[in-house]
C-alpha cells in the first residue's frame, strides 16, 4: 500500500496541536488519501493530499494557539534561547577554526581588504547565513519534541527581529541586503525545522 507523502504529514505533526485533535485530522487525511488512491490514481491523490495539508495546517496552528498558556510560551522561549546559544557557541568555535586555518594562507587578510558592501561578498554572506539559520531551526526543533516546528519558526522570528533592529541602526549595508537577511533567517530556520521533523518517526 502506498503511504501518504511523509514530509507534509511531518509538518502537520510538528505544529504543536493537541495530540487527539492532530491524530484525528492526520488519520482522516490518510484514510481519504487511500480512497483517492484507489479511484483517482497516485498523482491525483498526492496532489489532493498536499492541497489538503496546506488548507488544514492553519487549523492545527489555531488549535495550538487556543491552548496557549504562559507556561507554554515560557517553554518555547526557553527552547529558542537554548538553541540560539547553542548555534552561537558552535558558530564561534567554527569561525575561530576557520580564521586560524585561513590566517596561514593570508585568505582572511585578503577578504578583509574587500569592501563590506561588495555585492558578491554580501551575496556570499547571505548564502553562508543559510547554514547557521538552517542549523538553528534544526536544533530548535530537536530541543522541542512537543511542537518542533513552532520552536523553529519562533527562533526564525526572534532572529529576524534582532536582525531588523540591527539593520535599522546600521546604515552601512544596502536595503536589499537587510531585507534578504530577514528572508534567509526565516526560511533557513523553517527549512531546518522541516528537516528535523521529516527525520522523526511519527
Amino acid at each position: 500500500m502506498i503511504a501518504p507523502p511523509r514530509i507534509p504529514t511531518s509538518l502537520l505533526e510538528g505544529l504543536g496541536a493537541d495530540q487527539e485533535f492532530r491524530d484525528a485530522v492526520i488519520g482522516d487525511l490518510a484514510e481519504e488519501f487511500a480512497i483517492r488512491l484507489e479511484y483517482d490514481g497516485v498523482d491525483a491523490a498526492r496532489r489532493w493530499y498536499y492541497r489538503e495539508v496546506i488548507r488544514t495546517a492553519p487549523h492545527l496552528l489555531r488549535n495550538w494557539a487556543w491552548r496557549l498558556r504562559p507556561r507554554e510560551v515560557a517553554r518555547v522561549a526557553g527552547v529558542v534561547l537554548a538553541s540560539y546559544v547553542t548555534v552561537a557557541m558552535i558558530g564561534a568555535l567554527i569561525a575561530k577554526i576557520v580564521m586560524s586555518v585561513t590566517a596561514a594562507f593570508d585568505v582572511a587578510l585578503t577578504l578583509q581588504r574587500l569592501p563590506v558592501t561588495n555585492p558578491i561578498m554580501l551575496a556570499a554572506a547571505l548564502f553562508l547565513g543559510l547554514l547557521p539559520s538552517t542549523f538553528g531551526g534544526y536544533v530548535a526543533a530537536r530541543f522541542d519534541a512537543k511542537s518542533p516546528l513552532i520552536s523553529a519558526l519562533a527562533l526564525g522570528m526572534m532572529w529576524a527581529s534582532a536582525a531588523a533592529i540591527a539593520g535599522a541602526i546600521d546604515t552601512a549595508f544596502p536595503m536589499w541586503y537587510k531585507l534578504a537577511v530577514l528572508f534567509v533567517l526565516t526560511i533557513g530556520t523553517t527549512v531546518g525545522g522541516i528537516l528535523r521533523v521529516r527525520g522523526t518517526p511519527a
Binding site: A3, P4, T9, E20, D23, A24, I26, G27, D28, A30, E31, A34, A202
Partner: peptide, 15 residues
C-alpha cells in the same frame, strides 16, 4: 470517543 487504531489511518484511531 476513539475507535481502535486502523492500518488505513497509519495506525491512528477514528474519533
Amino acid at each position: 470517543r476513539a475507535s481502535v487504531p486502523l492500518p488505513v489511518r497509519g495506525g491512528r484511531s477514528r474519533r
